[in-house]
């Protein structure tokens, strides 16, 4: 139990805000002696670290009963689950009790300072980043909306709407390779497409707030 606690602390220490309120499934499959684990105590431990336990898997029947009593989802039974480790789509936090070898990083491991989007953002889609920057490697379609508390970088065309500094950061900026946006805003100050300087249309630009007005300059 102490080993688990220490490993959890280390894991959370790597990216505290990423794991905050993260849903976890407790997997008993890798433990050498799973029957010894007291589910209630383990749950307290996990909760203390800021996780939200949502289910258990690979557990004994007794643990399964306990889990159900605690309103946890039981994802697989011990018999069928052991061999099929990545059966669920849910984010699985692996708890290794022994040597910490080859521990895989969670696939969605991103620094809270930036969120990276690699797929095109389609019309009607809305991306909201509540903390840090948003980096879009493709284009933002007409009718799409991207919002970030920090800066917004678009490495393709920006055809939709972009709101940087959404929580009030007047220093936030918007960068894009091709300015065709419907509207751009920094910390709530906006400019509609019609007011863009014609010389900067479809150009790579840099957008910031200057004297409480949107200022667009070429990159």
């Amino acid at each position: 139990m102490e080993i688990i606690s220490a490993q959890l602390a280390k894991k959370v220490g790597q990216a505290p805000s990423f794991f905050r309120h993260a849903p976890v499934v407790l997997d008993f499959g890798h433990l050498p002696d799973p029957d010894r684990i007291d589910i209630t105590k383990l749950l307290d431990l996990v909760r203390e670290r800021g996780f939200i336990p949502v289910g258990i898997t690979n557990c004994t029947e007794e643990q399964q009963r306990q889990g159900e009593a605690l309103e946890l989802a039981v994802l697989t039974t011990r018999g069928s689950g052991r061999l099929q480790e990545d059966k669920t789509d849910e984010e699985q936090e692996e708890i290794l009790s022994e040597d910490n070898v080859a521990q895989p990083e969670p696939t969605a491991h991103t620094s809270p300072a930036a969120t990276v989007i690699t797929e095109p953002i389609r019309s009607g889609q809305r991306i909201v980043v509540e903390q840090g920057d948003l980096i879009v490697l493709t284009s933002v379609g007409s009718g799409a909306e991207v919002t970030a508390a920090g800066n917004i970088h678009v490495y393709g065309a920006l055809r939709g709407r972009a709101f940087a500094g959404s929580t009030g950061d007047t220093q936030a900026r918007i960068f894009c390779q091709q300015l065709e946006a419907e509207l751009v805003a920094v910390a709530g100050v906006y400019l509609v497409n019609e007011k863009f300087p014609n010389s900067l249309r479809a150009q790579p630009v840099h957008i910031r707030l200057q004297a409480e007005r949107i200022r667009i300059t070429p990159l």
């Binding site: 007409s142 419907e182 509207l183 906006y190 509609v192 497409n193 019609e194």
Partner: peptide
């Protein structure tokens, strides 16, 4: 788009 005011929508 059909009314030609898409650049002024806030």
């Amino acid at each position: 788009l059909v009314m030609g005011c898409e650049r002024r929508v806030v």
